[in-house]
Design a protein around this nucleic acid. Structure first.
Length: 480
RNA sequence: GGUCCCAUCGUCUAACGGUUAGGACACCAGGUUUUCAUCCUGGCAAUAGGGGUUCGAUUCCCCUUGGGAUCACCA
């Protein structure tokens, strides 16, 4: 069996968003599960669009997700260089072969002339075909004008197979004399990617839907070049959440590394991306990366577009966080704790205990501070917590004071181990004849000054007796 | 406009031509002696429309509609 070699071939025009990354992911998955190689190739043939730093940025994005390439810029490999601007001589060589074979010719028209042909076709409500203007006796190509492919559309319908889309066809009228090499000496994508895929022995071309319409042209070129065709797999697009447009940078698609910054797990992101357009036919929702590698298959990839739904990603991230053991999670959240934690509390043991209490409510790491700040700081008294409370807000001040004083007395005489504290709180419930919602909310507000917290007994136990008593006293002073 | 692709709950998706059209996210209600979260239970919610083929169509075919892509010296 032929070696499986897949590639991701971005152009360095900025960051990559989820749509681009998903294409990379699927190509990587195909390579991984077949013991093949995944190649990163930079398609920088349009110098005008190049954004400096984007190659590094793309590589960082892939690395974050663990989508490691076996061959690529900086990494090396037997088929380099892996940057198209460094392969100009290779394209030139194949271009010469096409010229020799009479399958390429110099474009005699200026850009303006071609544009006027195009406008004319538009005006006539026809599709523009350059080959209708193909010169009879083109001059030899000297490299100062574009080099065009001399297509041979034939009269037959063109058929081909796509692993995702199925059996495809198109009429010969879509095949045209596209540009192989631009007047600046750089090849177009249309030419360069086919040469490179051949030279690099790519077995599966996995790419976005935007290239589907060009397939007949590519097929024609493969034949002219005498190249064996790879397996084609076309990925449907990811659309904006609400809108109906292809997800793009202009439409607010986020840099994938933003999710890393916000504290999303790479496993959750991969799980999310993979399930956007693929599923294994079972009802499983949460997958580990090895599971996805094992179960992925191109023929189960959806052939319709999908919408990007960040809420689902958020849920998936929470689900993955909950599955982490506490030590692993602790390592991952290291840079997300509140700033300026008092030295006394800034230790692994305490922070790990805090983390244990909030793990199941953590959705992404950046919300760690707001979930945990009262464990580290005495928050300013917030009167609205009481006044805005459904039950407590209606109670007379005197009653609140009395209740809190009773609680204070009981708590003072309680051992602060979680279960003893819980028992004590339960007794308090009985003696005061209060509803849990009233008594516990009051104590929680006093001890945390926060609208939400983990379980009361666990929280108080971790805070410690001194701090709890102090905070309750402060609350009493504020009310009275 | 030409060409191509696509069409199941709001969203991601299951369903050899035979299912009460399933699951998940989101949302709503209830439960787990308190909040938030988790967990559990329940609820809401879909085969775009019209024709065929068939005993039977979400599934196959055609038309319509809708969405997407493409028609660059961009990729």
């Amino acid at each position: 069996m032929k070696a499986i070699r897949t590639r991701f071939a971005p152009s360095p025009t900025g960051f990559i968003h989820v749509g681009g990354i998903r294409t990379a992911l699927f190509a990587w998955l195909v390579a991984k599960q077949n013991n093949g190689k995944f190649i990163l190739r930079i398609e920088d043939t349009d110098q005008t669009r190049e954004v400096s730093g984007s190659i590094e940025h793309i590589q960082d994005s892939l690395r974050w997700l663990g989508i490691e390439w076996d061959e690529g810029p900086g990494t090396g490999g037997d088929y380099g260089p892996y940057v198209q601007s460094q392969r100009l001589d290779i394209y030139k060589r194949w271009a010469d072969k096409l010229i020799q074979a009479g399958r390429a010719y110099a474009d005699p028209y200026s850009a303006e002339e071609v544009q006027s042909f195009r406008d004319q076709a538009r005006a006539n409500k026809q599709a523009f075909l350059y080959r209708n203007h193909r010169p009879d006796n083109p001059k030899p190509w000297d490299g100062t004008t574009p080099l065009r492919f001399k297509s041979e559309p034939g009269n037959e319908t063109i058929n081909w197979h796509d692993e995702v889309m199925g059996d495809m066809h198109a009429g010969p009228e879509v095949i045209d004399d596209f540009i192989l090499i631009k007047s600046d000496g750089f090849p177009t994508y249309n030419f360069a990617h086919i040469v490179d895929d051949h030279e690099m022995q790519i077995s599966h071309v996995i790419r976005g839907q935007e290239f589907l319409a060009s397939m007949p042209n590519y097929l024609n070129l493969y034949e002219a070049l005498g190249f064996e065709k790879p397996v084609f797999a076309t990925m449907p697009h990811i659309l904006n959440p609400t809108g109906n447009k292809k997800l793009s940078k202009r439409d607010g698609a986020k840099d994938i590394l933003n999710y890393q910054k916000e504290g999303y797990l790479k496993d959750a992101m991969i799980n999310f991306l993979a399930s956007l357009g693929w599923n294994d036919g079972t009802e499983q929702e949460v997958y580990s990366v090895p599971e996805i590698i094992d179960k992925f298959s191109l023929d189960k990839v959806q052939n319709s577009n999908a919408h990007f739904d960040e809420r689902r990603l958020l849920w998936l991230n929470g689900a993955h966080i909950r599955e982490l053991d506490i030590d692993t999670l602790y390592e991952k959240v290291a840079s997300y704790w509140p700033k300026n934690i008092p030295e006394k509390l800034d230790n692994d043991d305490y922070k790990k205990r805090v983390l244990t209490l909030v793990q199941e409510r953590l959705k992404f790491f950046e919300e760690l501070p707001e979930l945990t700040d009262f464990f580290f700081f005495d928050l300013p008294l917030n009167p609205e917590l009481l006044s805005g409370h459904k039950q407590l807000g209606k109670m007379p001040t005197q009653e609140l004071t009395q209740l809190l004083q009773t609680a204070l007395a009981k708590i003072e005489s309680t051992d602060f181990e979680t279960d003893k504290l819980q028992a004590s709180l339960n007794e308090l419930l009985a003696t005061t004849e209060q509803k849990p919602v009233v008594l516990f909310s009051l104590i929680r507000i006093a001890t945390t000054q926060s609208p939400a917290s983990p379980g009361l007994a666990e929280t108080m136990s971790l805070l410690g007796k001194d701090k709890c008593l102090k905070r309750i006293n402060e609350q009493l002073n504020a009310i009275g």
